[in-house]
Every structure is written in C-alpha cells, then in structure tokens.
Design a protein around this nucleic acid. Structure first.
Lengths: 212, 212
DNA sequence: TAGATTGTTAATCGATTAACAATC
DNA sequence: TAGATTGTTAATCGATTAACAATC
C-alpha cells in the first residue's frame, strides 16, 4: 500500500537500496528475494518489504523482485531520471574534486557551471564545466534553470552564498561547509549537508568506546 | 544515570551538540538551559536532557548547563582529547582538499602522513604533511602508531587499501569511496563512510517530493 | 524564599520485526 | 500442484516526549 508520508528513516535507506541493486545488476543478477537482499545489506527481509511497500508492490509472490525493474523504480522515486541541473560555488580543492571526480551524471544530475572569485580560475573549464566569476551568479541563475547549488565555499561566506542561490531560484542546496544554513535565510529551499567533522567525530567515538 | 549502551541515535547527535556548544562558547555564552539549546538546535528540551543524562549529570537545577564545561564533557565523550593520529591514502583532489582544508587538529586528530602512487607527489609535503609512496604504507604503520586511516583512493582499490590499513593495526577507517567496505575484510576495525552519492540522492528525493 | 530548571520516571509515538494469508 | 515469497496486519521494541519531584 502506498503511504502518504514517507519516514526519513526509509528515505535515508533508499540510496543504499539503489547502490546495492545497481551493483547486483552490474553483476548480472536478474532476480532477488527480500531475504537475499536483506542478507547482503545487513537488514531484515521484513524491513525491506515494508520499505518498498511504501511506494508500491514491486515484487511477485514466489519469485521475489526483478533487480533491473526494482532499480528503476528506486531511481524514479529518488528523482534520478529528471536530469536536474546543478552549479558549484567554490572551485577550491573540494569543488575541483567534485567537478572532476563525482559522477553527477550517474546520479541523475547535470553539472552545468562552476563559480569562483579567483581570477586565475575564471574563464577556464574544468572537467568540461565552465568556471565563471561569482559575481555573475545571479545573471546565470536568471538565464538558466538550476535545480541545485553545491556549496564548496569557505564557511565565512556560506550563509550569504546560500541566500544568493535561494534568491536565484534553486530548489536544493548541497552544503559541504561546516556551517548550518539557517532555514529562515533560504525560505523553502531544501538543504542537505555533508558534515565531514560530524562523521569523523562519530568514528572517533566508536574507536574510543571500543576501549572502555 | 549513566547508561551502559548508548544508542546510535544519540551518538549521531553528539557532534552536533559539540558544534553548537563550541559556537555558543565562541560567542561568549556562559550558561544555557536545555530549553534554549533545544530551540537553537531544533530539538526538544526533553531530548537534550535525556541525551546528556546518558553520560552523567552535567547540569544544575535552576541554572542550566555551563557551556564551556558541557562542551568539554562532550569533547571527552567523543574522544577529542586523545590526539588520535591519522594517515591519508590517496592524495588526489579530495585527499588534498582534506589535507589542506580539513581542521584535523580542531577535531582532536593529528594528520601524520599521506600516501599516493603518483611519483610526482611522492617526496613532497602538503600542508605540513609528508607524502610517501603507497608501497611504504606497511613499514610506516609498523613504525608509527596510527589510529585512523582516511580512504580517498579510487574505488577500484578501496577494499584492498582498507585491508592493508586494518592489517597495519589502525582502529578506524574514514571511508570516502563509494564502495562499502565488507566488515569481514577488516576484522574489528570500525568504518565510518561519507557517501557523497547517498547524500545527493537524498536531496534529489526531497526536491522531487516537493512537487507531488 | 520563590522561580527556574534539572534528572528521571512514565506515557506516547514511531519504527522494526514477526507472522501469515494470498498468490505466483 | 507444491514451494517460495510477497504485501500487509499485528506484536514488539526502541526512541521521543511529557510530567514532575528534587533542588539549586
């Protein structure tokens, strides 16, 4: 049965489902049962059936799930087939790492432009993407439909940059700064943050706990 | 009352507590009530008191919590005062971004070395950190106590690299590759992964959902 | 003292797990 | 058909919220 409101616990698992199903598909696996998938992902079969049934009945009794079909369904749910566009603010080391190495395309995104204030970078192209001066952000956003802004700027200009992206009409901000973007600054724009420090400190806790 | 086993939900919130308390401390705030902290973090006062009481009674009735003291307690719990050492495997764009820009020190870590296979990098220093050839990893780990290995290598060598780190005696692996490191490959070594794609797809879901 | 706020116990809510009829 | 496995309902478990006596 399709549910109205999907819990965030389920949503957080969807990308993992996609990753595992994609892996299975690339290995040539045609079908899989909830039990087998559960084992390989470290979940329970019940949980997987519950999760998937939020979106529809993708399986078949006595058979299980068709891997390619299910991968496609999960991709659709995640919005991977909408060719969302993205721009990057900040072409420092981290920005460049994303531009050159992150598979935007494989995740359903098209990276269309990067912005930086460094004159040495402006005008160049990186991984096929043009780098413009940050002051041209507003006019660019005005002329192109951009769904997501990626924040790889210094923390000191994070909030201001987020506000400019929001004013320019983006729908989401992918935040790599260690600053929390106050929701009030950006209206209804959604933010997803990658807090490196939070992640490292979690690991720090885990190895500390080990020693009690 | 101190609890034996801390739930992972609580652990995941600890770094956020630290971040907010540090911010408050830098702004000169001396004391704060659970209610006020809750409001600024978007949690409930109840939840904050419950979370903190897992580790001890850090507050005072009628007063609240001393910000500096509480920040220190949370830092201790997270293991931030143990001067854990870390090495980075892979000095590509992402590795360099971490070496040059991530505040290891401020998070209680000392980055002691980087490893790469590129002859153009080996022998150089980056942000005060020496870069060695990856083949020297084992001898380095044998001679130095290293608590954490940071994985910023290509996915194709992720599992092998993780195994080498584990064999070398690290206690934790901070994984930036899009590969899930099978626990069996690394014994009791703890892994914390930063899955960029999972994060972006979560954002993709959020902006897609918006349109229903 | 009176007011504020904690730590903790109890109540509620939500998420995970178990069970099973439906059915391929 | 018999066996396998789903989708869904019910039971359990865990986490969040509410309430309040203790006390600074």
């Amino acid at each position: 049965m399709k549910k109205d409101k999907i819990s965030s616990a389920v949503i957080r698992r969807l990308p993992r489902y996609y990753r595992h199903l994609d892996e299975l598909h690339r290995k040539g696996t045609v079908r899989i049962s909830s039990g087998a998938l559960a084992k390989s992902m470290g979940l329970t079969a019940s949980q997987i059936r519950q999760d998937l049934s939020c979106f529809g009945g993708f399986g078949q009794q006595g058979y299980g799930y068709n891997v390619e079909r299910l991968r496609g369904e999960v991709a659709d749910i995640l919005g991977m087939n909408r060719a969302y566009t993205a721009v990057i603010l900040g072409a420092g080391n981290l920005g460049r790492a994303l531009i050159e190495n992150f598979p935007f395309q494989a995740n359903g995104f098209v990276l269309v432009a990067a912005f930086d204030v460094d004159p040495a970078l402006v005008g160049a192209r990186l991984g096929g993407v043009p780098i413009y001066h940050t002051r041209a952000l507003e006019s660019y956003l005005h002329e192109h439909r951009v769904n997501v802004g990626v924040l790889t700027v210094p923390g000191s200009v994070a909030v201001e940059s987020a506000r400019r992206l929001a004013n320019g009409g983006v729908e989401g901000i992918w935040n790599f700064t260690n600053i929390e973007i106050p929701q009030q600054e950006i209206g209804k724009v959604r933010v997803e943050s990658v807090h490196f420090a939070d992640s490292l400190l979690t690991l720090s806790y885990m190895i500390s706990e080990e020693r009690l």
